[in-house]
């Protein structure tokens, strides 16, 4: 994973699309599917994950010299769990209505493989700056994926987006979308869309490369 000459912009941008934690790496799905029945919940969950990921990456990369490798995983887990507790209480105090909706799923951020994975494979090996940038990229990518999923499910399943009524009162909602099967099906179809787009991009790039070869 560590590149020879890490480029901050590259590190940031890769998490958004190419290495998107959800669409490309299929990580961190447990909390994601459960809470994305509306865009607001998705935003809140994404925001909470954002905070935990960035804060943990920062702390881990700044403490990496003092953490012996034998206990590194345990230490990461403690750090992550701490920040999850912090965001849990903060949400409960600041946005109680949303906290009630997300309920039991906030604590589950602890076992989001994506967060632990970033600590192990990136933050513990890079400078603070890079680690934070990487975490930012991944977190934004995660947030984006959650929002996409939450938007589709909310728009079809409720006729609203972020609580805004989109189709007027006569819309017949597709209830399945806010139910568990809708989560599975939507994410499956979004993954399909992602790989279709990725393939199209790759084909386009190949065609461009060919044209360049011909041009020279």
């Amino acid at each position: 994973m560590p590149t020879s000459k890490p480029d901050a912009y590259q590190e940031f941008i890769k998490g958004l699309w190419r290495d998107n934690p959800v669409f490309a790496q299929v990580l961190g799905m447990c909390p994601m599917l459960a809470v994305t029945n509306s865009a607001v919940n998705a935003l809140a969950m994404g925001g909470a994950t954002f905070f935990v990921l960035v804060a943990s990456s920062f702390l881990v990369s700044s403490l990496k010299r003092w953490i012996p490798k034998q206990v590194r995983i345990s230490t990461y887990v403690i750090i992550i769990a701490t920040f999850v507790t912090v965001i849990d209480y903060s949400l409960q105090a600041l946005l109680p209505a949303i906290h009630k909706e997300l309920g039991a799923f906030i604590p589950l951020i602890v076992v989001n493989c994506m967060i632990l994975g970033r600590q192990e494979s990136f933050a513990s090996r890079h400078s603070i700056g890079l680690a934070v940038i990487d975490a930012l990229g991944m977190a934004v990518g995660f947030l984006f994926a959650l929002l996409a999923l939450g938007s589709v499910r909310e728009i079809l399943g409720n006729g609203t987006w972020l609580g805004l009524d989109l189709f007027g009162p006569n819309f017949e909602p597709w209830v399945i979308m806010v139910l568990p099967p809708g989560g599975f099906l939507t994410l499956g179809l979004l993954l399909l869309l992602f790989s279709w787009l990725a393939e199209r991009r790759q084909k386009l790039a190949e065609r461009l490369a060919e044209m360049e070869v011909e041009g020279t």
Partner: peptide, 10 residues
């Protein structure tokens, strides 16, 4: 099953 889950009333 999809229809029943999506449009339970109808």
């Amino acid at each position: 099953a999809f229809l029943l889950a999506a449009f339970p009333v109808a």
